[in-house]
Amino acid sequence: MADNSNQSTVQEGQQETKGMRPIWYFVGMVLMIIGAVLVVTGIYYVYNPSPQASAVAYLYPNIWWGGFMLVSGGIFLYTSKDVRIK
């Protein structure tokens, strides 16, 4: 989507700071930030196990699911960082 050939995105000759950022930019940002919080929380629980561990705590879902969100969000953010809607 960062490709300027996309008709609905960047206007030719227009400064990139003008126009509206696409929703994918915000989706990327929120997934990345929440993903990072989950990864950090997961690592914390590796060293400080919760006394009320969930049924599958041994799988460390915070770490790999948070990591998945972080990567997914990063892709959204990277591909839409230069895009502006007319």
């Binding site: 919080v37 629980y45 879902p61 915070n62």
Partner: peptide
């Protein structure tokens, strides 16, 4: 039942 803290917030 399944989520640890952090994921519960999600």
């Amino acid at each position: 039942y399944y989520y640890p803290h952090g994921l519960i917030g999600l």
